[in-house]
């Protein structure tokens, strides 16, 4: 466990809790893409199939349970409890445009043609693009609440920190995971424009507005 990976996981947990906090305290899913959260659910379920079969550490298992349960809770809040506040008209990204390619790529590029490895690869590829509906929604609505911006910053930072972790592990352990690294780089690059807006606007106390 490198420091970068721990920082990355904590940033990930922070993001997930920030989102739940925002929806629960404002009792509103306004500005939040339900589709992105649905796809994160798929990401965790398809990636952690080994939750009950392979035990790595208490930390590993705890985080897996946390990620799965928190993402299910988030989807429940958006699509059921606070359904009336869900802004479906601005959450128009076609999920199949990312789910199908991720599945096809997983059938082509995987570490073994087994259900588990294909499911894992699908999960890695899907996670790389799952944020697109949310980023799309922010550009469509033209702005994001501050706490939503902080959520996106924490979420984008988690995989960026994982990239530092992968560099660290390659340097010290001499091996790397091509699928995870490739997808992780794509995932982090997709946040590029958001990171720019975050650092030039939100940090200075201004609202995150996507300039028309």
């Amino acid at each position: 466990m490198t420091l970068f990976r721990l920082a990355g996981d904590l940033s990930h947990v922070l993001a997930i809790l920030l989102l739940l906090y925002k929806i629960w305290t404002t009792k509103s899913a306004a500005g939040i893409s339900g589709k992105t959260q649905l796809m994160f659910c798929m990401v965790y379920v398809t990636r952690y199939l080994d939750l009950f079969t392979s035990f790595i550490s208490v930390y590993n298992s705890t985080m897996k349970v946390l990620f799965i349960s928190a993402s299910v809770a988030t989807v429940y809040l958006i699509y059921f409890k606070f359904k009336a506040t869900y802004d479906g008209n601005h959450d128009t990204f076609r999920m199949e445009f990312v789910i199908v390619p991720a599945l096809i790529l997983a059938l082509i590029w995987n570490y073994a043609f087994t259900f588990f490895e294909i499911s894992w690869a699908f999960s890695i590829f899907l996670e790389a693009v799952a944020i697109l509906p949310q980023l799309f929604m922010v550009t469509k609505t033209g702005e994001a609440e501050n706490i939503t911006s902080h959520y996106l910053f924490a979420l984008g930072s988690y995989r960026a920190l994982y990239i530092l972790n992968w560099i660290d592990r390659y340097y010290f352990e001499g091996h790397w995971d091509p699928i995870a690294v490739t997808a992780g780089i794509v995932q982090t690059v997709l946040y590029g424009d958001f990171f720019y807006l975050y650092f030039t606007r939100v940090i200075k106390g201004r609202k995150l507005q996507v300039l028309p």
Binding site: R5, D50, K64, H175, A180
Partner: peptide, 10 residues
């Protein structure tokens, strides 16, 4: 199989 990198990460 053994060439699959370890799945010790989240």
């Amino acid at each position: 199989n053994d060439n699959a990198p370890s799945k010790d990460e989240l």
